[in-house]
Amino acid sequence: MNIFASGRFWLAGPVAFFLSIIVMLGMALWFPKGHAGIDNIVLPMILFPLIWAVFFFYAYLDRNIKRVALLFLTVAVIHISLLVLQFTAGK
């Protein structure tokens, strides 16, 4: 398969990387805080490499590239909305 022509290179490369960052940041808002109130900060950071690996291999291996793009877009929209709400709610 030609990963450049199908756009797979961009989805598995930079898009998967930045999406992992967005998900990590967004997780600070929906992940349970835990007894000490720190789980939502610490665990997303620890899980970041695994989140990236899941996105990367999914984008690289799924034959349906449109499905990958749609799923990535959905995840990105949900997390970006959460982040925007967090920063605009208090203003």
Binding site: G34, H35, A36, G37, I38, D39, I41, V42, L43, I46
Partner: peptide, 10 residues
């Protein structure tokens, strides 16, 4: 190591 109370994160 992190936080004041024991937690899964720590």
């Amino acid at each position: 190591q992190i936080g004041i109370e024991p937690s899964i994160g720590s």
